[in-house]
Amino acid sequence: MSSESHKATFEQLVRPHFDRLYRLAFRLTGRKAEAEDLFQELLIKAFGKLDDLVAIDEPGSWLSRVMYNLFIDEQRRFARRRMHVVDEGFLSGEGLAGFAGTEDPERDQQRLEKMKQLDAALQKLSDDHRIIVLLHDTEGYKLDEIHGLMNIPVGTVKSRLHRARARLREILSENGTFS
């Protein structure tokens, strides 16, 4: 296969999954710049494994798993540095621009405040809990898909999801979001 042919085959296999993969990258990292880096690293890695990719029935699932593993490796590698990352919300700055408004400004403002509280609460969860709740409740992943991605039993996914939601409720109750 020629180099151009390799590239064309690669693009054909990966492009249909770009949106879902980018969303996954964003939910894992919480920041656009890091999501783009992770997405890029995935594509570089996947291109190096084109022979494997061609033979896979569900390249989307495979790519998601590789991305998750890259994210975990990166987390471990820079664990010490990440502890000193500035304490900013995932939605700080441009992220809030993505919050859809309605025709009721007062309601929008209340909802925006709650969304900020939710954002802060999500940061207080462990990585596992945050990722599971975002993938399941925000992105609509099925339990089985999360099991395949994170390589943990479905029962564990369910219990972590349950605990993550309970912890969110606890944090949001404590800070008066539901008062």
Binding site: K114, L118, L168
Partner: peptide
């Protein structure tokens, strides 16, 4: 819980 789920469904993200 219902309210949290609704917020999570709308939890925004930044497009590439």
């Amino acid at each position: 819980d219902q309210e949290i789920l609704e917020l999570l469904k709308d939890y925004p993200m930044t497009e590439a």
